[in-house]
Design a protein around this nucleic acid. Structure first.
Length: 533
RNA sequence: GGGCCUGUAGCUUAGUCAGGUAGAGCGACGGACUCUUAAUCCGUCGGUCGCGGGUUCGAACCCCGUCAGGCCCGCCA
């Protein structure tokens, strides 16, 4: 059974109504690592719906979190906002400076600045969660009840965190972080509690009080999280392995949640996505691929497939080079198979059955719209990469695929071709996929030619020189150059590939040659002929 | 120091919860085809399941130890 279906099955044992939650702090540019958080949750939701459950899928935006430091993409001016809640400070402009104008005019804040493009990207991959903003939730009193319980039971919470995480909390620790008069959560020391007020002294020695029912501060993360579960009614949440480690925030949250009179949600821990050969994704080192950038290259259903086919516990190494080709082709191959039919075979081993079920689940969860047929283009990535490189315009590609006005290309295929062209232009496109005629064939390969191959090369050179330069003629020249000495055309193709591309195999030749200059090609063959002996 | 996750064919991996002769895809190799293009079709090769012990009639799976990579135990999501 697919991993998402396994979770759905567990959920069905707990009840029929569920709230599946995900959450991210928009403290900087999103990257595809964040996509795993959202997609994992979305796939669980979809699987749960498929299992007949009623599901609400939400995305909690942690815009109540403070700005931790001045990130490399920010101007030094942001240092004054350290400790301030990211939903309450201006967004950076192109130079990384705070954009006061937009902030004052229409409230364009730091969190939204990073969040909104991500939400757009989510739309294109078929993810439309209900958005819950933390800052709003605090100020509208959604956290009030849990905040009161937390403050009333500060000792119990302290005990749980110290025992479960094994770390010691300072004497001044309190389960509420008040905002000081300047709007900062940092350097504030709690001095007393008298519901609904938490009294404090800030870093400059100013005293003040924070009303916990009005969002004049927030719960620290380890309490904030279980409080969300409780007030929202979260029954399932997928989270990164950092939270999932034993003694981590899920473990403490699970117990703290009980104080709120709520059972912790069904957990699912997922691994990180890293960039192949470059280690973990990190915005500061520039070692990152944003969801938007990824979606320019990768068709959305294939990005989904990447997440769907990997078990959450497996680390994913993302790579926009050859791995992408293989991934996309595997998706196409899988779509083309009739997995239901294959599964109906009684003689299948249990193992084989499980494999087919998982694959079927992955394909099902990869389609952009739930319950739609798989978003297959029926053309392999490899094939499309060739067409995009050898055909100068889209119409020629459709012609080659046998598509015309009565049998037009699908919107998926049109989208694929557009992305393919972007990809080919990008530095991510793998060299081994790039079609290019080399200037000089490797002499070593030429000198290993058999007598037959030499003969074919001589034939071919002469035939190409004298033929008319069109598709059919070129093709028959190649075939005939071998047939004339009663050899398989394969031999002639092999010879041609070595001379033109330095490899034993290659893409179908005639359509490529016809785009090139006849005399240059002939000259190249002639040059090879001189080198064979 | 304490804990968690991962380690299976060249690559990606399934199988580990419920122990029963190691499964798959890709690649590679061989063959067919050159009449939709690195395609397609057919076939072959490929694994001491990180390592060492233990339990068992039987271990990739359970137990103990060990090595390697990653993560958490810093209010950090």
């Amino acid at each position: 059974m697919h991993w998402a279906d396994v979770i759905a099955l567990n959920l069905s044992r707990r009840g029929t109504k569920h709230i599946v939650s995900t959450g991210i702090t928009p403290s900087g540019e999103f990257h595809i690592g964040h996509l795993r958080e959202i997609l994992t949750g979305e796939m669980i939701s979809r699987a749960a719906k498929d299992a007949g459950l009623e599901v609400d899928f939400i995305f909690i935006v942690d815009d109540a979190d403070p700005l931790r430091r001045v990130y490399p993409f920010l101007d030094e001016e942001y240092s004054k906002y350290i400790g301030h809640q990211i939903g309450n400070i201006p967004a950076p402009n192109a130079e990384g400076k705070p954009d006061y104008e937009r902030f004052n005019e229409n409230g364009w804040n730091y969190a939204d600045h990073f969040l909104n493009p991500f939400l757009d990207a989510l739309k294109t991959i078929g993810v439309r969660p209900r958005i819950v903003k933390n800052l709003e939730s605090y100020s509208s009193g959604m956290f009030s009840e849990c905040s009161k319980i937390a403050c009333d039971n500060a000792d119990k919470i302290r005990e749980i965190i110290e025992r479960v995480s094994g770390r010691e909390l300072s004497d001044s620790w309190f389960p509420w972080s008040p905002l000081d008069s300047s709007g900062s959560l940092e350097g504030v020391t709690v001095t007393g509690y008298d519901f609904p007020l938490v009294h404090f002294i800030d870093s400059k020695g100013n005293k003040g009080s924070s009303d916990i029912t009005k969002g004049e501060g927030k719960l620290p993360w380890r309490i904030d999280w279980p409080a969300k579960w409780a007030w929202i009614g979260v029954t399932c949440e997928a989270f990164g392995k950092d939270h999932g480690a034993s003694g981590g925030s899920y473990d403490t949250g699970k117990e703290i949640c009980q104080l709120f009179g709520y059972d912790a949600p069904q957990p699912l821990v997922y691994e990180w996505i890293s960039l192949k050969g470059k280690g973990a994704m990190s915005s500061s080192s520039g070692n990152t691929i944003g969801p938007m950038e990824a979606l320019e290259l990768v068709p959305p259903e294939i990005l989904r497939f990447l997440i769907a086919e990997s078990k959450p516990s497996k680390a994913i190494e993302f790579d926009a080079g050859m791995s992408l080709v293989n991934l996309a082709d595997e998706y196409e191959r899988s779509c083309a198979r009739d997995l239901t039919l294959e599964l109906s075979d009684e003689s299948l081993s249990r193992r084989r059955k499980v494999q087919l079920e998982d694959l079927m689940g992955a394909v099902r969860l990869s389609s952009i719209e739930r319950n739609s047929k798989s978003d297959s283009s029926n053309v392999s990535f490899r094939h499309l990469a060739l067409l995009a490189q050898t055909k100068s315009n889209d119409q020629l590609v459709w012609d080659s695929l046998g598509l015309n006005s009565s049998n037009p290309p699908s919107s998926i295929l049109i989208d694929r071709l557009e992305k393919m062209r972007t990809w080919i232009e990008s530095p991510h496109f793998p060299e081994e996929m790039r079609i290019k005629i080399i200037k000089q064939a490797p002499v070593e390969m030429l000198q290993n030619f058999s007598d037959d191959e030499k003969l074919v090369l001589a034939n071919l050179t002469e035939m190409l020189e004298n033929c008319s330069w069109d598709l059919d003629t070129i093709a028959s020249c190649i075939v005939d150059s071998a047939k004339s000495i009663e050899k398989s055309p394969r031999l002639a193709y092999g010879v041609s590939y070595i001379c033109l591309m330095g490899a034993k195999k290659g893409p179908r030749l005639a359509p490529i040659l016809v785009e090139l200059n006849q005399q240059e090609i002939v000259n190249q063959f002639r040059l090879c002929l001189e080198n064979v002996n």
